[in-house]
């Protein structure tokens, strides 16, 4: 590494293998999307991508993902704060449970949330009595997306709060700042960049999510049909071109988000 020299052996081998594997598993398959799209005429592509059903699904997917990521931003920050700063019985167990949405398969999350929030479910029944339809509605989609994105903000913010110097807060307090002002002026500026990273990660995850949503959403075109489901539906109808055109839109959105996430993380490291 020093002076950029390659002292250790294996550069050619690991570089060759890494690129070979990535090409085989990811790059070549992904270019199939661009290849397939290039066989469509421009008019056909635009028609597939701007079809009212597709546009409704973009709005729903990005809108619901945004609401879910915002919920996770607020509650994730709170959970991280509580886990770092306070002591209470069962804290270690609860800290471990935060990662459950990473470990629990999305299909299991989907059927479980649907059962809880359906008309006869433990929470669905009381909500129904209040006139709120949780399952088979947009609310259900937001609930599922909140579940899958839950760990991100907690896990990005937690280490930052752990690393906060208590002396700074004490200094702020001794200078007459109240708790709210200390939070806003001392804690938030330090923790915000990682909170935003967590928010972006949760949002990106939610946009692509399929398994947990298909069960609870009800899958009504124009109303509760998310983009990944629309892609699957088109595939099942053998409309490969239509599915691919919409997938291309999603891929471009994913690349943009990946770029934003990397830029954010690069900024935090510096």
């Amino acid at each position: 590494m020093r002076d950029g020299r390659r002292i250790l052996p294996g550069f050619g081998l690991t570089m060759g293998f890494t690129l070979f594997y990535l090409s085989l598993v990811a790059l070549i398959p992904l270019t199939a999307v661009f290849f397939k799209t290039s066989t469509m005429t421009w008019e056909r592509f635009v028609a597939a991508v701007t079809d009212p059903r597709a546009v409704a699904s973009y709005e729903l997917t990005f809108g619901a993902s945004l609401v879910a990521a915002l919920a996770n931003l607020v509650f994730g920050f709170m959970v991280a704060w509580v886990l770092v700063r306070y002591t209470f019985p069962g804290k270690k167990l609860i800290d471990a449970l935060v990662d459950l949405p990473f470990a629990l398969p999305t299909a299991v999350a989907g059927v479980t949330l649907t059962t809880i929030y359906s008309k006869n479910g433990w929470l669905g029944a009381p909500l129904e009595a209040l006139g709120v339809h949780a399952a088979y509605s947009r609310l259900g989609i937001v609930l599922a997306l909140t579940f899958v994105g839950l760990p991100f903000v907690v896990r990005t913010v937690q280490p930052v709060i752990e690393g906060l110097d208590p002396a700074m807060e004490e200094a702020a307090a001794s200078l007459g700042a109240g708790r709210a002002a200390t939070f806003r002026r001392v804690i938030l500026p330090v923790a915000l960049p990682s909170a935003v990273t967590g928010f972006t990660l949760a949002f990106a995850r939610a946009v692509g999510e399929y398994g947990s949503v298909v069960f609870i959403s009800g899958n009504m075109p124009l109303r509760t049909e998310i983009v990944p489901l629309l892609i699957v539906t088109k595939l099942e109808q053998f409309d490969y071109a239509g599915a691919t055109a919409i997938a291309l839109v999603m891929l471009v959105a994913s690349f943009a988000m990946l770029f934003v996430i990397n830029a954010l993380q690069g900024r935090i490291k510096r």
Partner: peptide, 22 residues
């Protein structure tokens, strides 16, 4: 590194789709 992170931000449905297309 960005390329290695790709599957984290690509929808699983698209991951399946690319293999169907190929």
């Amino acid at each position: 590194l960005t390329l290695i992170d790709l599957p984290f931000s690509v929808s699983p449905v698209i991951a399946g789709l690319v293999f169907v297309l190929l």
